[in-house]
């Protein structure tokens, strides 16, 4: 089934980027690098937050015991 990075991990990383960027000793190169990464992760977070179609599936068990899913008729 689907593999996605956990949203909590994304937020934790973004918080760490903010802390590093707010520290005084950071040099510009590193700041640029962190900024680029931050923008990338913010975009990913925004994409997740903008998903609007809830996926609802029904779990079915085949005769041999394997599980599969099917979109639920709503």
């Amino acid at each position: 089934m689907t593999e996605r990075p956990s949203f909590r991990d994304e937020l934790t990383r973004l918080e760490s980027i903010v802390r590093q960027m707010e520290a005084d000793e950071l040099d510009l190169d590193k700041a640029l690098e962190l900024f680029e990464e931050g923008v990338r992760r913010l975009k990913a977070a925004r994409e997740l937050l903008s998903e609007s179609d809830l996926k609802v599936k029904r779990v079915l068990e085949a005769a041999d015991g394997t599980l599969r899913t099917r979109d639920l008729d709503r």
């Binding site: 960027m21 950071l26 937050l49």
Partner: peptide, 19 residues
């Protein structure tokens, strides 16, 4: 969304200081 917006603001601010 509000929380992520705040993180974005602080990242932008951090870069502003550096640049």
């Amino acid at each position: 969304s509000g929380m992520v917006g705040e993180l974005a603001r602080r990242i932008a601010q951090g870069l502003t200081r550096r640049t």
